[in-house]
């Protein structure tokens, strides 16, 4: 589903972010990406939704290859992905409901289908009662739930989460993690970058650790070896 093959990513200003990384993520998997700041976690995520292209090597996501993908291919791929960030990236002047429906409107979903899908997504993240609230009227955890609802509304096969709990307190963090587990249990693969080692240790999901742009540990490989 996600395949990075000998991927190197170099930036003109900051140098090498990833160096000869090979990684596969299968259907329905839950993978933690861990490591210190600047290790290359976010770069792997950006490569996964083709926001960045590799300097060398190949990234293939659901059959779309970085070597051949057009801008339209990238747009169509993203309709099948859900992406959430530490800073939520919500539109401040739109309600929770409008933020979620926005993701459907801009890809041309028929109007008649939108309200049901939005209601379902908000219910799934436990925010049906706050559909009409503006982001500033919601707590951090609730805002992240809206962002997750927006990511889920298109029934993605993969949810990419870049430090989704980075701005949240412990209670909200646990809530969001529980939500991501439920989403994964329903069949959606989740790749989550995090600094929160407690969260990582609290589950037995696959963990890939990065340092200086290289994979230094992969629990899947360790498991296979043992």
């Amino acid at each position: 589903m996600i395949r990075l093959t000998h991927v190197t990513k170099t930036y003109a200003r900051s140098g090498t972010a990833l160096s000869d990384v090979t990684l596969r993520v299968g259907k329905g998997e839950f993978v933690f990406l861990t490591g210190p700041s600047g290790a290359g976690k976010s770069t792997i995520l950006k490569l996964s939704y083709l926001e960045e292209m590799p300097t060398s090597g190949e990234v293939k996501v659901s059959g779309v290859s970085s070597a051949t993908a057009s801008r339209n291919d990238v747009a169509k791929l993203r309709r099948k992905l859900g992406i959430v960030f530490q800073d939520f990236r919500l539109l401040e002047n739109r309600t929770a409901e409008q933020n979620v429906s926005f993701a459907l409107e801009v890809i041309g979903t028929p109007k008649a289908n939108i309200p049901n899908k939005v209601a379902r997504a908000l219910t799934q993240v436990g925010l049906a009662s706050k559909a009409n609230a503006l982001p500033r009227e919601l707590s951090g955890g609730e805002q992240q739930r809206v962002a997750i609802a927006r990511a889920l509304v298109n029934d993605p096969f993969l949810l990419i989460a870049d430090e989704p709990t980075g701005n949240l307190d412990e209670r909200a963090t646990r809530g969001i993690f529980q939500l991501l587990r439920e989403i994964n249990a329903a069949g959606t693969a989740v790749v989550m970058a995090t600094h929160n080692l407690e969260l990582v240790r609290s589950s037995d999901f696959r963990t890939v650790e990065l340092d200086h742009g290289k994979i230094v540990f992969d629990s899947a490989a360790e498991g296979a070896a043992s």
Binding site: Y49, A75, R78, R79, I83, R89, L91, V106, N154
Partner: peptide, 13 residues
């Protein structure tokens, strides 16, 4: 911001 979100959720150019 709106444009970046549009791109993330798959809006075409």
């Amino acid at each position: 911001r709106e444009i970046s979100i549009m791109r993330l959720v798959g809006a075409t150019d």
